[in-house]
């Protein structure tokens, strides 16, 4: 059971949050100019990292804020939470 730090509310049990997938996938600005392949890459391809992964969470049963978390997907250790638009932590992949 993860213990996630919401940048606004502090550490809370995982059950207060909902997962929202890989972070830092910017929506293309001029979608019409993309090839089908480029659009498919944005839409479906994911890093799915085994190791340090940057992902979005939503404090659904709290402040309803989305934020980013850097988490090791093997140990599940969270190296830090940061607000959208902020630079994340420099993770220690151990």
């Amino acid at each position: 059971m993860l213990l996630i730090e919401c940048p606004w509310c502090g550490e809370r049990d995982e059950s207060e949050f909902s997962y929202a997938g890989e972070a830092h996938i910017a929506r293309p600005l001029e979608t019409e100019k993309l090839s089908d392949e480029e659009w498919a890459n944005y839409l479906f391809l994911r890093k799915n990292i085994k190791g340090l992964h940057r992902e979005q969470w939503n404090h659904a049963a709290g402040c309803r804020r989305y934020f980013n978390v850097e988490r090791n997907t093997v140990s599940y250790k969270i190296s830090g939470s940061y607000k959208i638009g902020e630079q994340g932590p420099v993770g220690d992949d151990t």
Binding site: G21, E22, A40, N41, F44, L45, R46, K47, N48, I49, K50, T73
Partner: peptide
């Protein structure tokens, strides 16, 4: 459980989440 890891070795990405 590890196809993204193998795909990464081969130099491409998959539409997959584990």
């Amino acid at each position: 459980g590890h196809c993204s890891v193998l795909a990464d070795m081969a130099g491409f990405r998959m539409p997959i989440e584990s």
